[in-house]
Design a protein around this nucleic acid. Structure first.
Length: 345
DNA sequence: GGATATGATTTATG
DNA sequence: CATAAATCATATCC
């Protein structure tokens, strides 16, 4: 809207005399006689154009309409078109290319990798699988994970809503501007290139806003990750049953407490934890046992007794009325001392 | 609240 | 790569 008076001033108002783009009949001096009425006409029109900004909008609208209907309008318009063509050509120079922003690409890639952008990934299938695999025992673990997933999808949803909002606003604005330009193109020459450029400017602006959104979404995801996926921060003790199973194995293999890969897998399954966790547990247990055997003596005795009783039960099942609740009363079980022949290397 | 227990991670080693 | 050892960071106990 504000370009109209400027254009008129700079090209039509002042620089008119002798402009190379102007047709012959408009470049004549004031001395001519037969073109006098016509010149007066043009002068009037130009005067009207010049004063258009001083008028109220309604008045201007009316003037515009009047100008539009004026018989000289097509001729003048053609002149303007010519001028425009020349000046626009000189304005438009080395600015058209637009390389993809590496920063934006980085953000996009990350959002895609985190599953925030892109298509909805298989809803809860991973969580369901985890819950199924862990049975009832590892429920807290999967619950924690689902909490993480819930937060992530929350972020995802906000991100998409905002993105959509921006997109919509961008489209609305673009349409609005294009309508304006189209409307203005009746009174001033507007090339398709110009419209294109305007649209691309708008899109650039909006995409820079989008980048901010992506940036903050990335930050949110990062914070979420560090909060939830750093297991050290959310350490959970294994449940009683799991530690019993692990201890049982440890003390019954005290001479060589290094479960094979298969044994680890078995233990992991029984305890509803991962193989890595089993390895961690044994690593911790070995070093801590070795460091302070005395402290573990009682525990060692207890588990040794229990396995002894279990063995006895298994070997002579049914014949004896035994009570598994009195393991300590049974004397003579092998004491799990830290001796040279059952060394941890 | 601090002491201790404990699961996970890091670092070093062969 | 598996493990030992040190270390971290939280959980749990008292």
């Amino acid at each position: 809207m504000d370009e109209q008076p400027r254009l008129m001033h700079s090209h039509t108002g002042v620089g008119m005399a002798g402009h190379p783009g102007l047709p012959q009949h408009m470049q004549e001096g004031t001395g001519g006689t037969d073109g006098d009425g016509r010149k007066q006409d043009i002068g009037d029109i130009l005067q009207q154009i010049m004063t258009i900004t001083d008028q109220s909008l309604d008045e201007a609208q009316a003037r515009k309409h009047a100008l539009n209907c004026h018989r000289m309008k097509p001729a003048l318009f053609n002149v303007l078109c010519e001028i425009k063509e020349k000046t626009v050509l000189s304005i438009r120079g080395a600015q058209e290319e637009e390389p993809p922003d590496p920063q934006l690409m980085r953000l996009d890639n990350m959002l895609l990798a985190e599953g925030v952008a892109g298509p909805e990934k298989g809803g809860g299938s991973a969580a369901a699988a985890a819950a199924a695999a862990s049975g009832g025992a590892g429920a807290d673990n999967s619950a924690e994970h689902s909490d993480y997933r819930a937060k992530l999808s929350q972020i995802r949803q906000i991100y998409h809503t905002e993105l959509e909002k921006y997109e919509q606003a961008c489209n609305e604005f673009t349409t609005h501007v294009m309508n304006l330009l189209r409307e203005q193109s009746r009174t001033r020459p507007i090339s398709p290139k110009e419209i294109e450029r305007m649209v691309s400017i708008i899109h650039r602006k909006f995409s820079s806003i989008q980048m901010q959104l992506k940036q903050s979404t990335c930050e949110a995801v990062m914070i979420l990750r560090s909060r939830f996926l750093d297991a050290r921060r959310k350490r959970r003790n294994f449940n009683k049953q799991a530690t019993e199973i692990l201890n049982e194995y440890f003390y019954s293999h005290l001479s060589n407490p290094y479960p094979s890969e298969e044994a680890k897998e078995e233990l992991a399954k029984k305890c509803a934890i991962t193989v890595a966790q089993v390895s961690n547990w044994f690593g911790n247990k070995r070093i801590r046992y070795k460091k302070n055997i005395g402290k573990f003596q009682e525990e060692a005795n207890m588990y040794a007794a229990r396995t002894a009783v279990n063995a006895a039960n298994a070997s002579s099942h049914g014949s004896q009325a035994n009570s598994p609740s009195t393991p300590n009363s049974a004397g003579g079980y092998p004491s799990p001392c830290y001796q040279s022949d059952r060394r941890i290397q």
